[in-house]
Design a protein around this nucleic acid. Structure first.
Lengths: 242, 242, 242, 242
DNA sequence: AATGAATGAGCGTTCATTCAT
DNA sequence: GATGAATGAACGCTCATTCAT
């Protein structure tokens, strides 16, 4: 326990505002849908830094530049803000990883692509990632069950990618379920410590995790190098489109 | 983010009461230091399941079978309970890992021993581990700084073990700091998903993590097997003593 | 010590509701700034009768016909209510006395005017006077220092009026500072025992204090009579305007 | 309102520990009747500085060097401490003043003696005086009525001394009741501002109050001087005895 | 004579939420 | 679309007091 990564983002040394700063609300009223965005941003920031239960509706409203009552025009309740945030994150994460996996062919490459995208996504949306992950227990029964189901689905994709790699002989593992937990934990943890202002780029960190993951699944250095090259070729096509 | 492991223990399917159940307080009064233990147990359980901020002093008191005011005979404040819990956990964890490391000779074996003990300790004291780790941000400035310093020290031990393995040529890593984060995250995560009633023993899970860690640091299967054998020889001596 | 006057108003026999009765809150909600006034009235009454520390926010709320939480829309804290009350009282008292002093010419008349106005003001706002005076120690450091400074300023005005009277030969005193304390204590004490339903009018009581004060400063009966006449002439002009 | 005198002792500039400091209790147990004295001293000091309601039994116990529960061997309740303190003060004050009055003959001298003794007593026992005076309202109905009766008796003695002086032609007053209030208020107030470390001795302050009081009752400077001389003669006999 | 452990009531304050405007 | 005013419940904590030892 208690190594740096797993702490809340703001307790780690640099605390990068990856999702962007909370805008101090100007005093205009009648601002419409911008208000909703301001609420979302404020909620992500505050939930990430202090936790859901330590964040009051007042604090969110104040960070969003509105009165507490105004939040209730956009969200039914405090929990609804959290649910929206977590749903959005899970949906976008799942889509991004799915797209990355579809871009390559072999099981090892697909796993590597998933790991890479998972890491990049968690580095880019560190606060939302952390909140989605750590505040599952703050949900009431129904939405919690729903989110856990999505999380379990997401995990299962990784496990079956590992299984496919084992089946075609490129990877090895004694227990695929334990390996899946271990791999996702370390990749998810990137959201806890990655600092865009630090010495390592997010791309580099993602590659390092591909190395670690494939290595822990018994892949040879040559296989790892080949997979990384394949991923970067794919990326270049992507990058132009974006 | 958002795969099963990183959720709070109670949101995961099994939720094993690893630290023992909370005793329903009998109606005797004037129970002395047992009261303090009851408070500790109740606090660990509730902080782990609901989080620090979602746990009221009334809830702790009720779980400990006393009145809320009685807690203040044993602790100065709610935060003092948390600090005590976290300090105890960090101290015992550090001692346990240190002792394990001292029992073996080579850098690779020392790292493996540290990983093993870390995993076992997190499996045995899953709730305390989770609370120590996830509620750093609930602390006020001073105790937070103190705990973060301890955590950073602890992390640094792992990093220097990796470095030593790299230096003597048995291990390889592109970035020792990233590797340290990744390794500790996956080992710490055991506290989130391990269920003693599940199919895998804690010893088995610990061995699997040694395999994963050494593998991700480029160790050969032979080295891994040798190191595991060495660890188990050492353990047997220990076990007899205890 | 321990003669009737210095006791709290409600311990004295009659307990006149000089500042007006506390209105029993009707059950309308959303009353706006009237709510603030109701809080003020309730607080003055209760602080005066029971003391600041013996008055709970629940008691104030109940006397104001609202819920305790509603108080916090109008005041930051319990102390803020007290500070507001004391500030208001000191400001109005100072202005009133200043105006009275400016209406006459000679030093003896100015002192008499100050004494008269001080007594009248303390008779009219007996509860606020008592609370301002007796609950200085209930304040935290900062506001306490501020209030003490105002009180010291106010005292100094009286001392310098006495000094001026001594300088022009109309008054005599062995120690102007002791005289100032003594005079203000007896005039302030009017707030403790004056009862508007009693046999003496407030105007009569004020005149009596002018007699006592000037007498204790060695003024001749003729001077006292002259000064009182001058004051009453001035008053008549005032009265028509109001 | 709010001139210095009427504030609590500790808010006034010097705050003299007239009743002596609170001894830090040594850690011996089983200390017997010394404990009661320690409680009394602690209670006077704390009630005077913070007020009865702002003083907890814990604070008294701590200042007396014992545990809160030990207080209940010596006093039935918190109120009983206050009652004891107030009763003692009133009894000793009344006796002292009575003795002083008996030492002289003429009505004016008797009043002067009473004023003098009242002032001296309030200067010597400032804290007890202040608590007796200001915490009448903290008492429950029965003891409050008892104390108010004593206070009224005490006041009546002064009023009848004034009346006697008026009757024999040495003193004048428009309203003896108002004069009594005013005189006692200013003399009692000495407990609020007198500082034994200040430039004026308590004897001097007492004489000044005799001057003020007799002056406000129309006594000629010659009468005042004569009365003071008479008092001082009497005192010299007293002083030798003490 | 004094304590350590505990209680039940109540403290000042904050919470998420409602709703007429 | 947003606010100002209010609520009822609950918060962490302190209170005076009790009582077996």
């Amino acid at each position: 326990m208690a190594e740096k990564p797993t702490a809340a983002p703001d307790t780690a040394a640099p605390a990068p505002p990856v999702d962007g700063p909370v805008p101090e609300g100007d005093s205009d009223t009648r601002r419409g849908p911008e208000t909703r965005e301001a609420i979302d941003l404020a909620a992500i920031e505050l939930f990430a830094n202090r936790g859901y239960h330590a964040t009051s509706m007042r604090a969110i409203a104040s960070a969003a530049g509105i009165q507490p009552a105004a939040i209730y025009h956009w969200y039914e309740s405090k929990e609804a803000i959290l649910i929206g945030l977590q749903d959005d994150f899970m949906e976008e994460l799942t889509e991004a990883v799915e797209a990355a996996v579809d871009r390559v062919e072999t099981p090892a490459a697909k796993l590597a692509a998933a790991v890479r995208e998972h890491v990049v996504f968690h580095g880019l949306h560190a606060r939302a990632a952390f909140v989605t992950d750590s505040e599952i227990r703050a949900l009431t029964d129904d939405p919690r069950r729903t989110l856990i189901a999505k999380r379990d689905d997401y995990q299962e994709r990784f496990r079956s990618l590992i299984e496919a790699g084992v089946d075609d002989g490129t990877l090895k593992t004694s227990e695929d379920r334990v390996a899946t937990y271990a791999i996702l934990l370390q990749c998810t943890g990137v959201a806890l410590w990655f600092d865009p202002r630090g010495p390592l780029s997010l791309d580099r960190v993602a590659d390092l995790h591909v190395e670690l993951v494939l290595g822990s699944l018994g892949a040879s250095p040559e296989l790892i190098a080949g997979v990384l090259a394949e991923l970067h070729d794919g990326e270049q096509g992507e990058r132009k489109a974006a």
